[in-house]
Design a protein around this nucleic acid. Structure first.
Lengths: 194, 194
DNA sequence: GTCTATATTCGGATAGAC
DNA sequence: GTCTATCCGAATATAGAC
């Protein structure tokens, strides 16, 4: 009888470690050899669980996005009003800034290198997934996807700018500004397109 | 006496073409051979004008940033009030969205792959260059670097999100929202830290 | 370990200014 | 005709996917 392992659980464990590696070095610079060594398996094992290097990456994207959003929602849910929910969302971003930036970087990095439609589709769905999560915290029942997109923009931009220019106004300052903008406008902005 | 060419002018011409190439394929995927072929020169000539592939890239960064900002300032200068200046700035971004996104993508892509301090420094200066240009259009005399950073954030985020998720609310919608946020708040927001 | 692909080098060829 | 910046592309050394 063959050795039996929980295939799915082990797969996720590998994906978690793979994210750490990718995050540290970027997609292109992670060699399959180095990855196998870091994950404590052989290259053969790696290719047993994943068809290709790209498949590993896309697996990482799905895994991390699920984890992030679940964590954020958990942290936001307890709040009472929209303002407080918003504050908690920003707090989450502050706490996980490094992680989120790494993830964003990784996705952008990969997106630049791959033309594969299925890969792009997974990335698009992931972005929409984050945007939708934000929308649900922002408006509750309003269909204001654009405002969610704008907040996501500000967050993405803050992560990028801080990474590219360490002397930019610190992330916290910028997020505080975002918060002020959104909170001050709470209610004063009607729905987007109306 | 040797053959004479306008070294600096030819260098810039090469940089312009190199940007097109990098933008289309990303930093890593452009080989020196392919680049030489595309620019109509030999690899030897390439290395005559630039020390290394990285040097070509950093030259491209400076060249494009200078061109972009000069163009944007020219387009904004004629405006009368701050609101109108702001509108023109956003119009510039709308018009050049593809180009700006390619550039941003390129810088992020490179930044992810290189640990070289001098390269990072050039990138940081470039980001600060854009931010400073925005700041001068925003406040005139207020020292509100954080607000400029926030606007740059929103623009960066908009470019990124649209690229990653084609079904995100279109760039124009998002920029319109940014405009509304900033214009509505004109004057109602005191200086950042005060 | 193998095999492919890449950045960079180098010795020589060329072309125009004087 | 001479001189040298400019240009060339085969050769080299190295690295990564598998």
């Amino acid at each position: 009888m063959p050795k039996i392992v929980d295939h799915e659980a082990y797969r996720k464990e590998l994906l978690g470690k793979a994210f750490t590696l990718f995050a540290a070095q970027g997609y292109a610079r992670v060699t399959m050899r180095a990855m196998a060594r870091a994950l404590g398996v052989s290259t053969g094992t790696l290719y047993h669980y994943f068809d290709t290097k790209e498949a590993i990456f896309l697996g990482v994207v799905r895994h991390v996005a699920d984890r992030d959003v679940a964590l954020a929602i958990e942290q936001v849910q307890g709040a009472s009003g929209h303002t407080e929910q918003f504050r908690r969302l920003l707090a989450f971003v502050r706490e996980h800034a490094a992680n989120l930036r790494n993830f964003l970087y990784l996705v952008i990095d990969f997106h630049r290198q791959s033309e594969d439609p299925s890969g792009r589709d997974i990335i698009a769905r992931t972005v929409a997934f984050y945007r939708e999560a934000i929308r649900q915290q922002l408006g509750g029942d309003t269909h204001d996807e654009a405002r969610a997109a704008l907040l996501l923009n500000a967050l993405i931009g803050a992560l990028v700018q801080e990474a590219l220019d360490p002397e930019a106004p610190p992330l916290e300052t910028q997020l505080t500004l975002v918060e002020r903008l959104f909170v001050d406008l709470e209610g004063s902005l009607p729905a987007t397109g109306t």
